[in-house]
Design a protein around this nucleic acid. Structure first.
Lengths: 235, 235
DNA sequence: CCGCCCGTAGCTGCATACAGCTTGCACCGA
DNA sequence: TCGGTGCAAGCTGTATGCAGCTACGGGCGG
């Protein structure tokens, strides 16, 4: 069972679990437990936790444990506008030119996305969004900008994933439209257009997120089970 | 001698040493050595190194050691345009309003900066720049943007510090002008103006940096001793 | 004299033992 | 019965021992 893994692999797995809400906010993660699962000692797990902590996704409390952070309204309020700006810069800062491979890849994503309209599947939606994100990311020539593109993606992934499930039909439709717009931009080798399409998609999500909170208190108006579950990983 | 310190304190100290070129590029840092200096074990030092590695300021090689990274031309070429964009956003994303305390602080900085014109001192210049940076940073309301403001500052600090010493007179003069412009913006409670003044200052530095490299090879044209010194910290 | 090879020193990465802190529960007294 | 106190379990943070890797240098062969 305990197969050896590298720090990078464990980081990816735990990151995915947090973003996919398999580890919902406030979940207690224990170093020893993950160490056993991945067949390594606590030391590399601590490194994974530190990296996740610097991403703002977990926080350790001495003597207590390491918790998945809550979805903080104030954090999203700050990150989303910046994420939109980053999208606007995609076509601005030395973009890579589009190849037919890129287009083919997105065409295939479009087909799969249309399938979502018939039967929505959260996991499939996640995979498609993931693929689209990294395809676009690969076109960003500026490495620092690409880092931000990824960073803010992961920092906001949980909340859009949670919200996507609220209104599956609308989510699927918007997603197909987003891919179509992206494709138009790619075919024109107009990465600025691609960036603006992304910006608009992010803006729509941000609006949805902000509609979920009480602007005075900053509290979430309704909390689906997946956001509130305070479960231990044992059991 | 070995006084106990926290991880955060050690991180700050080592970060300063790297930015101030007390640890020049390619310096070999040993975990055990720093552990002894700060009176702790290798474990927290490793955490410091990991954080510095994620900032791109050090890199560990198994079996060899942890090195201060070189000043990579390609990295600066990517970071500077982004840093300029960040400066442009300062007045855009929910800035805090300016208080008289802020203005007073910068006024004092201006006085000290004028002293630099008479007698340039690299360390004093560093301190002033540091103070100005954080004063402006404190006016950024968007926490994510402030993180970037700090992050890119530290990632580019070494190179402008190295270049500042090249032409002390010009550096001092530009710096005074920058503070004057900043003060005008602050007094008008116009943080956008402050951001643009910063942007312009960053652009000037970037131009100076780019003039130092061969655009074909990416190699530095002339390497002052402080940039090339490959010394061990022992001795 | 030059080049190859192997041994060794010393570093990082990992595993593990220990210390300190936090929390919850049980027990005791009023 | 209720409140307070102390203890114990379990976690993170730290120290330290160990394994694996790399670089360097001396010695040997050509």
């Amino acid at each position: 069972m305990p197969e050896r893994s590298s720090v990078q692999q464990v980081y990816s797995v735990v990151l995915d679990r947090i973003c996919l809400l398999k580890y919902p906010p406030h979940t207690l993660l224990r170093e020893g437990e993950l160490a056993r699962e991945f067949g390594m000692s606590r030391t590399p797990i601590r490194e994974v936790f530190l990296r996740l902590a610097l991403m703002g996704l977990v926080a350790s409390r001495n003597g207590v444990g390491t918790f998945v952070t809550g979805m903080d309204y104030l954090g999203y309020r700050d990150i989303y506008p910046l994420r939109m700006k980053v999208a606007e810069l995609i076509g601005d800062l030395s973009p890579r030119s589009v190849t037919s491979r890129d287009i083919d890849r997105v065409v295939r994503l479009e087909e799969r996305a249309r399938g979502l309209q018939a039967a929505f599947d959260a996991r499939e939606y996640w995979d498609l969004n993931h693929a689209l994100h990294f395809t676009i990311g690969s076109l960003i020539g500026n490495s620092a900008l690409r880092d931000l593109w990824d960073r803010y993606y992961y920092q906001t992934a949980r909340i859009w994933y949670a919200i996507a499930e609220r209104d599956a039909a609308d989510t699927a439709e918007s997603f197909v439209a987003e891919i179509e717009g992206t494709l138009r931009g790619l075919r024109a080798d107009d990465l600025k257009a691609v960036g603006y399409v992304q910006r608009n998609g992010i803006a729509v999500t941000m609006r949805k997120v902000m509609e979920e909170v009480n602007p005075d208190t900053g509290e979430w108006l309704r909390e689906p089970p997946r956001l509130t579950a305070l479960r231990r990983t044992t059991g």
